[in-house]
Structures are given as structure tokens and as C-alpha cells.
């Protein structure tokens, strides 16, 4: 019963997290919200397996935990370099002007 309450709470958190993805003024807010939505999804899938007594759903949660991060890296490269093919070490700007590189999307 407590576990069902935890699942309900987690779903509330997902719904609240969705708000920032919908209204977020900048794209970064949306990505942040989507990324944290992914982490909550991992937790929810792990939890729902226990709630329904089918813990073999954990494999899906592992896949999410591993893969969720790759899309965020791709978005980060999209913002900073406007290219998916660049090597992160080659294009790195010099240290003194580092943070000022890149135009606003």
C-alpha cells in the first residue's frame, strides 16, 4: 500500500515536472525538465514492477538509465557547436575566453 502511495507521489512529481517542459521560457529549461523526467521514469518503472509484482521490468529501467543521457549530450552539442560530428576535445575553445563562445540559439 505504501508502495502504491510512492508510485502516486512519483506520478505527481512527473506531472509537475511536465509543467516546466511546457512553459519553460528557454529551451534549456525544457531539456532540463525532460532529462529529470527521464530519471523519474527510471524510478517509476522500477517501482511499478514491485507494485504489480512483476520485477522483471527492471531491465527496461536499466536501459533508460543508460540511454537517457545520450540525448542530452546531443542537445548540448546542438546548442554549443551546431553540429553533431564535432569532437568535443578538438573544438573546445581556449580557456580564457571559454565561457563566452557560442551564439544564443
Amino acid at each position: 500500500m505504501l508502495l502504491a502511495a510512492a508510485a502516486a507521489g512519483l506520478m505527481t512529481a512527473m506531472a509537475l515536472g511536465l509543467v516546466r517542459a511546457l512553459i519553460g521560457p528557454t529551451s534549456y529549461d525544457r531539456i532540463l525538465s525532460a532529462n529529470s523526467f527521464g530519471t523519474k521514469t527510471v524510478m517509476f518503472i522500477a517501482l511499478i514492477g514491485f507494485v504489480f509484482g512483476r520485477p522483471d521490468f527492471l531491465d527496461i529501467a536499466i536501459a533508460y538509465a543508460l540511454i537517457n543521457f545520450v540525448a542530452t549530450i546531443a542537445l548540448m552539442k546542438f546548442f554549443r557547436y551546431r553540429s553533431l560530428q564535432a569532437s568535443l576535445s578538438r573544438l573546445a575553445p581556449a580557456k580564457d575566453t571559454g565561457a563566452d563562445a557560442g551564439g544564443a540559439p
Binding site: T72, I73, L75, R80, G98, A99
Partner: peptide
């Protein structure tokens, strides 16, 4: 992911 995102946002 949080680090990459803030890095990209600050850089942009």
C-alpha cells in the same frame, strides 16, 4: 547530463 546542460547554456 546536468553539467553538460549548464555548460552548454552558459556557453551559449
Amino acid at each position: 547530463a546536468a553539467h553538460a546542460l549548464t555548460n552548454a547554456a552558459y556557453g551559449a
